[in-house]
Amino acid sequence: MSISLRHIDKAFNQMVIYRDFSMNIPDKRISCILGPSGCGKTSLLNMIGGILPQDHGSIEGAKEKQFSFIFHEPRLLPWKSIRKNLELVLDNQPIANKNQLIDRYLRVVGLEHFADYYPGQLSGGMKQRVAIARAFSYPSDTILMDEPLQTLDPRLKWNLMKTFLKIWNKDKRTVVFVTHDVDEALVLGEEIFVFSQPPVQIKHQFTNTLSEQDKNNENQKFFDLKNSIINILD
């Protein structure tokens, strides 16, 4: 069952972010929410994930879902090794061989040799890779991503997006990816929702038809699409 938001109202103090807002999140696809900073994208993820209550309206299909979350910052415990960090979220989960699972996902993100390192010994990009490995090793059906690439330099960012797609193609879960960066949206997003300033409305919604090869900054199609979206955003 897909997740659908029905007639959501949400305000912070006097500031209305959502008023009678509805949207559908398709199953097993990467939905990308693209919008200006401060338009309440993070609040939307938090409401879907159940850590922020909406004022009115309902979110259907979310209760029975299990969520992974890739945050803006890695959110790793500095006092635990990478392996133990992953092990912590698997504690309550019915998984036969946790170590094997951890090893597998660390290998996919290219960190198999760092299992016994502490987060403080890794770079920002590596830590965000660990967060991705944590999200996929956790038996969730939905992955929520809150601008996890924003603090990385462009080369690392492209690398990490490729890694993410590689994993996701083998293990298709519902993904809600929030960003204000058009490049990120076009590379990762399948269904792209362009949000307005609050109170939020969906200004534009389309299915991303760019092929893997088209997804680079030198490609004409990519470039044209990017410009048309920037126009919509403004």
């Binding site: 969520f67 992974s68 979350f69 945050f71 959110r75 912590l88 979220v89 309550n92 944590r134 956790y138």
Partner: peptide
């Protein structure tokens, strides 16, 4: 918050 979302006991 991270731990709560991942349902850590």
């Amino acid at each position: 918050v991270m731990a709560r979302i991942y349902r850590v006991p």
